[in-house]
């Protein structure tokens, strides 16, 4: 077992990502506004990205671009995966926003409850 301080500094980023994920999950589950749900989903996504990047970090390393005299590089693989995931996330967000615009035009609202009421009428 390591000493408490290094344990804390070794896991603080992971716990930060967990708290962000919890916040995003709470927004998605409790808020009825569809745009706010999309913001919540984006927060969940960024929490996962942050966890991934923190796994690839190496103490005393540099960015993975080959440099004379650099001994250690951070792991490039999570960077590649998350780089593409970020661009895919903007594409899926735009699709979600387009769907929300169509829902607004069809139901006159972007609140989940109101849409459901109009659906049951």
């Amino acid at each position: 077992m390591t000493d408490p301080l290094s344990f804390l500094s070794g896991h603080a980023v992971q716990w930060g990502a967990v708290v962000l994920l919890m916040t995003g999950l709470y927004i998605v589950m409790t808020r009825g506004n569809l745009i706010k749900k999309v913001v919540g989903l984006n927060i969940v996504q960024t929490a996962v990205f942050l966890l991934y990047i923190s796994i690839g970090y190496v103490e005393d390393g540099t960015a993975p671009i080959v440099l004379e005299g650099a001994a250690r590089y951070s792991n490039p693989l999570p960077h590649v995966l998350i780089l593409t995931a970020i661009v895919v996330s903007v594409a899926t967000t735009s699709l979600a926003l387009a769907l929300i615009v169509r829902i607004r035009e069809a139901y006159g609202s972007i609140e989940e409850d109101e849409i459901r009421e109009r659906e049951s009428d």
């Binding site: 390591t2 290094s6 344990f7 500094s9 070794g10 896991h11 603080a12 980023v13 992971q14 716990w15 967990v18 708290v19 994920l21 919890m22 916040t23 999950l25 709470y26 589950m29 923190s54 796994i55 970090y57 190496v58 103490e59 005393d60 390393g61």
Partner: peptide
């Protein structure tokens, strides 16, 4: 649900390698 998910993830993080 948020706290259950958070607790499970924090518990799992004890087995994760430390940052860096």
């Amino acid at each position: 649900v948020a706290f259950a998910a958070g607790a499970a993830l924090v518990y799992a993080s004890f087995d994760m390698p430390a940052l860096g």
